[in-house]
Amino acid sequence: MTNSLRPHGYQRAPLPPAREAEPTPPTPHRDTAGHQTGPPTAPTGSKPKQRDAFFDNAKYLAIVLVAMGHAWEPLTDYSRTARALYMTVYTLHMPAFILISGYFSRSFDMRPDRLKRLITGIAVPYLIFEIAYTFFKRWADDDPTYDFSLLDPWYLTWFLIALFVWRMTTPIWKIIRWPVPLSLAIATLASVSPDIGDDLDLQRVLQFLPFFVVGLHMKPEHFQKMRGRRARILALPVLACAFVFAYWAGPRMNKAWFYRRDSVQELAAAPWTGPVMTLALFGCSMVLVACFFAWVPRRRMWFTALGAGTLYGYLLHGFLAKGSRFWGWYDANPWTHEPLGEIVVTIIAATVITLLCTPPVQRLFRFAMEPKMVWAFRKDPAEQARKRTTTAA
Rank of each mutant, 00 (worst) to 15 (best):
T188L: 06
T134R: 04
R388E: 11
Y312D: 09
K372H: 15
L61P: 04
G250D: 03
L209V: 03
W173F: 08
L182K: 12
Y155S: 10
A33Y: 08
K59S: 04
F282A: 00
A290P: 06
C357V: 02
A392G: 03
I100G: 04
L5G: 15
D142R: 13
A231M: 00
L61N: 05
T304I: 00
E73T: 08
H29N: 01
K255G: 14
V214Q: 14
P74K: 02
L182D: 09
P334C: 07
P39I: 07
V374H: 10
F55M: 10
P339H: 01
R232N: 09
D142H: 09
M301L: 01
I63K: 14
L150W: 10
T273D: 12
A132M: 06
F243N: 10
D152Y: 15
Q224E: 14
R298F: 01
F164P: 02
Y247N: 09
R51N: 09
R204P: 02
A231I: 01
L85P: 07
E370V: 01
L364G: 04
D31A: 13
M253F: 07
G34L: 06
F55H: 07
L281I: 08
R167Q: 14
L315G: 12
V374D: 06
V352M: 01
I348D: 00
L118R: 04
P26M: 10
K322Q: 08
L239V: 02
M1T: 11
A269H: 14
P17D: 10
P25Y: 07
E370L: 10
R298V: 12
P275T: 05
R204L: 14
A53G: 04
E73F: 12
A67E: 09
A162L: 08
T389C: 06
Q384K: 08
R106F: 02
L320A: 15
L216I: 04
A246F: 11
K379N: 02
P112H: 03
F55G: 05
F377M: 04
P74C: 00
G309R: 04
Y155L: 14
S105H: 12
T2H: 02
R6C: 13
P271E: 07
L239G: 04
V296R: 08
L356W: 08
T278V: 09
T304M: 03
T273Q: 11
L306K: 00
L118K: 06
P25L: 14
A382M: 03
T32L: 15
I353R: 05
W166I: 12
L61T: 07
W272A: 15
K47N: 08
G313H: 01
P144M: 06
L288Y: 13
A393P: 09
W375V: 01
L288C: 13
P381Y: 11
W302T: 06
R106K: 15
A332D: 13
F54G: 00
A376N: 05
M94G: 02
A393G: 13
F365G: 10
R252S: 14
